[in-house]
Design a binder for these strands. Sequence first.
DNA 1: CATCAAGGTATTGGTGGGAG
DNA 2: CTCCCACCAATACCTTGATG
Length: 314
Amino acid sequence: MGKHERQSIEEAEKIIKKILNSELLVSGDKKNPWFDHAFQIAKQISKDFPNISLAKHLGNRYDNMGDILISSNGKNIFIEIKMSDTKSGVGTKANISQNALTKNNLFAGKVKSWSFFRKERGHEEWVGDYLDEFNRYSREILKTSNPVIQKEKKARYLRDSKRDIESKTILENIRERDRKEKLEYLNYLSTKKQDNEMIKRFFILITLGVHRKNALFDLMEEKNFLKEAQNLFVYYANCHKGKVFIKKEDVGNKVSKILSRYSNFKIIFPKGLTHCKIVGIRNNKPEPLLQIVLHWKNIAQGIKTPCLNIFDLT
DNA sequence: CATCAAGGTATTGGTGGGAG
DNA sequence: CTCCCACCAATACCTTGATG
């Protein structure tokens, strides 16, 4: 899985759980690349929350926020873990589904989704045409029957033939045209009427770590999801000059502060950039909160997995 | 060297459509 | 009509590169 293995991160979360429960560690645990981070986080957690009676690893579940649940002094505390071996990396706040902007009623009335917008513009077709400007694909690629898989193989081939200037140019052209398409879409969105209340809710939910399509959609309608935030903490472990240091964030606190700070919330569309921003209005001036980037994952831009990359600007 | 836009890998899980 | 499984969208983790 590349350099930063999700699996080892997940294992590291379990190591934290074990330490909090005073369970015995096995030799594999100590070999985990994130062991140091995990150990330091566990240490900090037990300092912050005395008398932990039980720690549970939550894994990826719909019904809860956070990676680890601890019971401390009779209270349930949810803990989210972020580990990075750079000095300041906090990872991406979230990758959410490509059409989340329009599927959650952030805009009033009928608004086209990003995927629909692309379909209207024949995205798949024009990408195919660009890819076929190259005519030396292997027989194996050309006889791939599934058109989507064939497209991906072609793109991967072009990406991996590093020295070939023609390959590079094709992918570059796709990226450029796709970028224009993104900008057109954002420009389209910018003309639509916004629902400020829904934007506010969306922002809070993302901040709370609710990212999954369905959970997000359901909670957007739910009245008092705010209480969910009260006991959520994020622990960041970063590395600087070989030393791990820990930062703790009180999410409930953060959300309450933000809510009292801003009179209104809206989405702005910076000119010429492939993202939009959720901003809070304070003294009639917008302050950036979240950046929502139209983005493609896997292989190259325009090719495989459209998504929204979200960054925390607070 | 900080910032931030843009880029990445791998796995999970919902689902459409063919097999039985 | 149900079941299964290939697909692929969705999701969870992050890093790199350009810029001033």
